[in-house]
Every structure is written in C-alpha cells, then in structure tokens.
Amino acid sequence: MSIQHFRVALIPFFAAFCLPVFAHPETLVKVKDAEDQLGARVGYIELDLNSGKILESFRPEERFPMMSTFKVLLCGAVLSRVDAGQEQLGRRIHYSQNDLVEYSPVTEKHLTDGMTVRELCSAAITMSDNTAANLLLTTIGGPKELTAFLHNMGDHVTRLDRWEPELNEAIPNDERDTTMPAAMATTLRKLLTGELLTLASRQQLIDWMEADKVAGPLLRSALPAGWFIADKSGAGERGSRGIIAALGPDGKPSRIVVIYTTGSQATMDERNRQIAEIGASLIKHW
C-alpha cells in the first residue's frame, strides 16, 4: 500500500482519535458579512469528516447552483462504474471539434489522439474542462443518470439537468442544476469515506481534487503551510461562485467545507476574496 493510499485508508482512524471539535460562531459572522459585502445569498456548511456531524452552517438547506462543483460527483459516478466493471479508466475516447464547448483548455489539445477516461476526469476536476465533463456525462448516460446515481446514494436534493455550459445559467428560483450545502457536503463525505467506492477509487477521487489547479484564489489562499486540501470550485452566471473541499491540518483532511453564493453584482475577484476570507476565519478558529 502506498503512503497516499495509507493516508486515505486511515482518515477515519486518525479522526477518531482527534480531540473533540467545537464550532466557532466567528466564522458564521464572516459568512454573514460576506453576504453584506456581496449583496447576495451565501450558503455555508462545515462537517466533521469522521462523524458527519454538522459543526457550523448557514442557509444549509437553500438551493444554490452547483456550477462546476458537480464534476466531482460526476467522476465519482464514473469511478463507481469502474468498480462495477462497467468502465475502464484506460479506455480512450475520441471526439471532434464539434464536441468542444466553451472553456476546454485540455480537451482542445487532444482532438487528434483523444483522451482516456482517467485523463478526462483529471481534466474535468483539476482544470474544470467543460468538454471533458460533457464527454464523461455521455459515458454514464447524461445528466439524468448522474441525478439517479445521487438518488441511489441517498441524495434526493442534488440534481443535474443540463450539460456544460448551460448548467451554469443560475436563474433565480430555478431548481435545475442545483444542490443544497448540506446535501453536497453529505454526498461528498460519502464519496470520500464511505463504502460506495473502493479504496482505490476513493484515493483516485481525492487525488484529482488535491491536484486542483484553478481554485488557488479561494480556500487555498488562506491555508497555512502543512495543511491538506482537496477541492473543486465552480463559477456561473449572475454572480455565482462555489467551492467544495476536504481539508485539515497535519497533512490530512478532517472536515468537509461547502460554500456557495449566487445573485451578486460583485466582480469575480471580490467573490473570490470573500470566500478566501471565510476560509481564513475557519482556519483561525479551527
């Protein structure tokens, strides 16, 4: 067993022997301040990774656009098919120029040779490549099948209805392509620590998230040296922004954090800054 596999296998073990965790309302004060600064709703939840206990939450059962955070769930569904012998990570998928959609920095470079399922998941999570996500959605049967996968996990809230990039439209009061912070946090925890996926697939999923290259201005910008984070960000229309993450000190994750916002007129930089400040408060009061 590799060191990384050992780390993920012992996530519940280490967490069980940690000192009790206590909620700190100071972080919620910052979440509410972010709402004021952005002029928009902000949803927040913080779960203990081992027990699933909610440590703090704000608007945990209000719907927010998922945006690209759905790509972690998508690759979880792909990995479940791999575990069941219905898919192979090494299978190569070929596609054409007509398949390319807006923001496809990886797939646009491989029109000639195609990409493997493993490479597509890596591109979808680490670079948020939209064509990679659409190609992977095709392998599982489309958005409705991802929703069905989530329902089978016990998540009857999260739903995907459309493809990239239309799913980022974020129309107010439109339930399409949305989740709730509580539902997303619980589902992410199941994917990373539950028995739904094999140990190898859980490790692969967290490795992809740990290698995320496009979430630097968010929670990662607030992390002290030595902290662990595996995350996936999302951005959408109407001032929408979000991030889902597993993080913790001492090089291992111990909490799940989900943050979503929508309806702001603020710039992307300002949305990023507010999420980073929430992260800084979380870490300060850990």
Results as ranks from 00 to 15, higher is better:
24 H>N: 14
26 E>M: 14
28 L>Y: 10
28 L>I: 15
30 K>H: 08
30 K>N: 05
31 V>C: 12
32 K>H: 15
32 K>W: 10
34 A>D: 03
35 E>T: 03
36 D>A: 14
38 L>Q: 06
42 V>G: 02
43 G>V: 03
45 I>A: 14
47 L>V: 15
47 L>T: 08
47 L>Q: 08
48 D>T: 04
48 D>M: 05
50 N>A: 13
52 G>S: 06
52 G>Q: 07
54 I>K: 07
59 R>T: 02
60 P>Q: 15
60 P>A: 15
62 E>W: 06
63 R>Q: 08
63 R>D: 03
63 R>E: 06
64 F>D: 02
66 M>G: 05
68 S>M: 02
68 S>W: 00
69 T>A: 02
69 T>V: 03
69 T>M: 04
70 F>M: 15
70 F>C: 08
70 F>P: 03
70 F>T: 06
74 L>I: 08
76 G>M: 06
77 A>R: 09
78 V>D: 02
81 R>C: 06
83 D>R: 04
83 D>F: 02
83 D>N: 06
86 Q>H: 15
88 Q>I: 13
89 L>W: 07
91 R>P: 03
95 Y>G: 04
95 Y>F: 13
96 S>W: 09
97 Q>R: 14
97 Q>A: 14
98 N>F: 14
100 L>C: 06
100 L>T: 05
101 V>N: 08
101 V>K: 09
102 E>C: 06
103 Y>C: 05
103 Y>G: 06
104 S>V: 03
107 T>R: 00
110 H>I: 06
110 H>V: 06
113 D>S: 13
113 D>M: 10
114 G>H: 05
115 M>E: 02
116 T>I: 06
116 T>K: 07
117 V>A: 04
117 V>D: 00
119 E>S: 09
122 S>V: 12
124 A>Y: 01
124 A>Q: 02
126 T>C: 09
128 S>T: 04
128 S>D: 02
129 D>Q: 00
129 D>P: 01
132 A>W: 03
133 A>Y: 00
133 A>E: 03
133 A>N: 02
133 A>T: 10
134 N>T: 04
135 L>D: 01
139 T>R: 11
141 G>S: 07
142 G>K: 03
142 G>N: 07
144 K>R: 12
145 E>M: 13
146 L>W: 06
149 F>R: 07
150 L>E: 00
152 N>S: 13
155 D>R: 01
160 L>A: 10
161 D>Y: 05
162 R>V: 02
162 R>T: 08
165 P>R: 06
168 N>Y: 04
168 N>C: 07
171 I>P: 09
175 E>P: 14
179 T>I: 06
179 T>A: 05
180 M>G: 11
180 M>H: 13
181 P>L: 03
182 A>Y: 15
184 M>D: 00
185 A>I: 00
186 T>P: 08
187 T>L: 09
187 T>Y: 02
187 T>Q: 06
192 L>I: 12
193 T>A: 13
193 T>P: 02
195 E>P: 15
196 L>I: 13
198 T>G: 12
200 A>R: 15
202 R>W: 05
204 Q>P: 04
206 I>G: 09
208 W>I: 03
208 W>C: 03
209 M>V: 01
210 E>M: 12
212 D>C: 03
213 K>E: 08
214 V>Y: 06
220 R>Q: 05
221 S>C: 11
221 S>W: 08
222 A>Y: 09
224 P>G: 07
225 A>G: 12
225 A>V: 13
226 G>D: 14
227 W>M: 01
230 A>H: 02
231 D>Q: 06
233 S>D: 00
237 E>S: 13
237 E>C: 14
238 R>E: 09
238 R>I: 08
239 G>C: 03
241 R>C: 06
242 G>F: 01
243 I>Y: 06
245 A>K: 03
248 G>W: 02
248 G>Y: 04
251 G>F: 09
251 G>N: 12
254 S>K: 12
255 R>F: 03
256 I>E: 00
257 V>D: 02
259 I>D: 02
261 T>L: 15
261 T>N: 06
262 T>R: 08
263 G>P: 05
263 G>V: 05
271 R>Y: 04
272 N>W: 03
274 Q>Y: 10
275 I>L: 11
277 E>L: 12
278 I>P: 01
280 A>R: 15
280 A>H: 15
282 L>G: 04
282 L>N: 04
282 L>S: 06
284 K>Y: 11
285 H>L: 09
